[in-house]
Design a protein around this nucleic acid. Structure first.
Length: 636
DNA sequence: AAAAAAC
């Protein structure tokens, strides 16, 4: 191909002065796909990066780098198409799959930076308008009959379709029907000295909480509830386990009670950083929401779309959501945040770090500025500050605790160890009776340490974000019900997750900063219980760790330690790992019912089920998923 | 720097 010939077909690329062809315009479309990112992560963490990779690894199945980049590049290599279709055909084949908020390739004059609720063309879900056809019938082309997505389709003839009453109950979680059934509130049963009443909480909420033994507000609740009820923006700071959930939950429910919520336009939104946390907040608020006739819905990734979309369409008062899925639903037009009266940001310091910030601001931008905003956080640092400045109006700040380690029932130990002892020491510490959480730095590390512990006779399971949602739930359930006493986790479990009676936290990899340290430590000594936090420190980490402990307000001197030392024995109660490998308890077999019966209804199911992986008991395991990485070597 | 958050 001559130079002349080439120029003919690449006029758009434009030449630079030195005669080289500029980068093609669609270079920007070559962003990493999800599968690619995962593969890249794995490759980066593995010492074998760049060498021959196992073809059955995760990346391959999800459309790994080889396949994908081939596809992306092909449009350059192909002979250019001429003629009227040229422009279209020479476009890259791949769609841009970045989320809307990260895609701003339009020229500045075309951009619209106004929040969506201020724009005229709101991206609402326009099924109704679309189905209306103004043209005379002879001009209409035949449309396929079933345009609705499969989950909305009803194939049966109309006369056979069931009415509301016959719909299965799992499809009806809009608690609207309870409005009429609600018994009149008996004010007499609220104890006169109940302090929640003094804060202004509705009697029926007080009664409901009293049934669960909640009669006295925690300090953070006492501090923030009155202001939140008064409609002010609140900035609440309290340590994990200090009762923040009710601190924002009660005012939110009070505010949303009895109002009208339009289809797809929720009036309340609670944002949390992890799916597990979303689930926990949802479960904590559900009974309370019920007595207030407030409908709520969990909106999180890893769950089927249809029920979430359906709930939104019917109209749900309050969303408890992780950012990614909620943005997704808004882009689809299934949700519209333009009617949100009260928005809550939980674990704000985490939600405001670099990775999360764009998603959070996108969502907050979609809510009306006139709405009330509550922001709760364990610590307040620079990132939180920018959110506060941008989105809160004259916020009232309440900090009940210093943000440092003030729980007196918690003891901290810094053990300076030799690198070769880390495994055996971890195993020894984890072999104690009672629940233990071992924190590690990476996903791969979590898998590796869990395997090592099981090989040494300690029943341990890994928990991290690379597992399927089903596996995450199963593991957490097993940890809660005691069948697996040791959880090896990344920082996915560092924040907010509440499990009773975790007596020991082992930081096999030290926390990255003092905030992470305190969050991890906060998994133990909850609700006044006792607990210990042991950090394994390698010699070269010692200086940094001492400084970190200082800024965390932790009073602990680094101590040299070896397996079998007296201090270690005290912490473990003298237990030693058996040395005989153990296997994880088999997941309980679950009947696989088509059409979504009861089993695995929601990822909060307390039953350990097999979820999507269910394909009968003894069949070969599908060759995917992070468990493959178990045996991979890994170095610090 | 890792982890988390969407198919």
């Amino acid at each position: 191909m001559t130079q002349h010939h080439q120029d003919q077909h690449e006029p758009a690329a434009g030449n630079t002065a030195d005669g080289r062809i500029k980068k093609p315009r669609h270079k920007k479309f070559q962003t990493q796909s999800y599968g690619e990112r995962m593969a890249a992560d794995a490759a980066a963490a593995s010492p074998a990066a760049g060498e021959v990779r196992d073809d059955t690894a995760r990346g391959e199945r999800r459309g790994g780098p080889t396949q994908y980049s081939d596809r992306g590049v092909r449009s350059y290599d192909r002979a250019p198409v001429k003629g009227y279709r040229a422009e279209r055909a020479n476009q890259p084949r791949r769609e841009d799959d970045r989320p809307q908020y990260r895609r701003d390739d339009r020229p500045a004059y075309k951009r619209d930076d106004r929040p969506s609720y201020q724009r005229d063309e709101r991206p609402t879900f326009k099924r109704d308008e679309r189905s209306r056809d103004e043209r005379p019938s002879y001009q209409r082309e035949e449309r396929p009959r079933n345009e609705r997505p499969s989950y909305q389709r009803d194939e049966r003839p109309r006369f056979e379709r069931s009415d509301r009453a016959e719909r299965p109950t799992y499809g009806r979680d809009d608690k609207q029907h309870t409005k009429r059934d609600e018994a009149p509130v008996d004010l007499g049963t609220v104890a006169p000295d109940n302090q929640f009443a003094e804060l202004g909480i509705a009697p029926r909420l007080i009664q409901r909480m009293a049934r669960d033994g909640i009669t006295t507000p925690f300090p953070i609740q006492a501090a923030t509830i009155p202001d939140a009820l008064a409609g002010k923006d609140v900035l609440g700071r309290g340590q994990t386990g200090s009762g923040k959930t009710l601190g924002f939950g009660l005012p939110t429910l009070m505010r949303l009670a009895g109002g009208r919520t339009e289809s797809r336009r929720p009036r309340g939104m609670i944002l949390v950083p992890t799916r597990e946390l979303a689930m926990q907040v949802h479960d904590a608020l559900e009974p309370l929401a019920h007595v207030m006739n407030v409908s709520l819905k969990l909106i999180a990734g890893g769950l089927p779309y249809p029920k979430q979309i359906d709930a939104l369409r019917r109209g749900v008062d309050l969303l408890i959501a992780t950012p990614g899925r909620l943005i997704d639903l808004c882009e689809q037009g299934a949700a519209d945040l333009g009617a949100v009266e009260i928005a809550v940001l939980d674990e704000a310091d985490h939600m405001c770090d670099m990775g999360f910030m764009p998603a959070v601001t996108t969502l907050l931008d979609m809510t009306p500025a006139s709405g009330q905003r509550l922001l709760f956080s364990a610590t307040l640092d620079n990132d939180v500050d920018t959110i506060v400045k941008t989105y809160l109006k004259d916020p009232v700040t309440h900090s009940t605790e210093s943000g440092q380690a003030t729980v007196t029932t918690m003891e901290h130990h810094l053990l300076v160890i030799e690198p070769g002892h880390k495994q055996s020491l971890t195993a020894e510490l984890a072999s104690r009776d009672g629940r233990t959480i071992v924190f590690v730095r990476t996903k791969l590390g979590a898998d590796r340490v869990a395997t090592q512990l099981r090989d040494r006779g300690v029943m341990a399971a890994a928990l991290h974000g690379g597992l399927t949602q089903g596996a995450r739930n199963r593991t957490l359930d097993q940890f809660k019900d005691g069948s697996v006493p040791v959880l090896v986790a990344t920082d996915v479990a560092a924040r907010g997750i509440h499990v009773d009676d975790v007596g020991l936290i082992v930081q096999a990899d030290p926390a990255a900063d003092h905030k992470d340290y305190l969050h991890r430590a906060g998994r133990t000594a909850r609700a006044g219980g006792k607990g210990a936090v042991v950090t394994l420190v390698l010699p070269h980490q010692r200086r940094g760790m001492v400084r970190l402990a200082e800024s965390a307000g932790v009073d602990a001197e680094p101590v040299r330690a070896r397996p079998g030392d007296q201090l270690v024995t005290e912490l473990t109660g003298g237990n030693k790992p058996s040395g005989y490998p153990v296997k994880l308890p088999a997941p309980k077999p679950q009947r696989f019912g088509k059409g979504g019966g009861k089993g695995g209804k929601r990822f909060g199911s307390s039953r350990p089920g097999r979820g999507h992986d269910s394909r009968g008991g003894s069949g070969p395991r599908r060759s995917n998923g992070p468990r493959r990485t178990d045996g991979k070597s890994y170095q610090h």
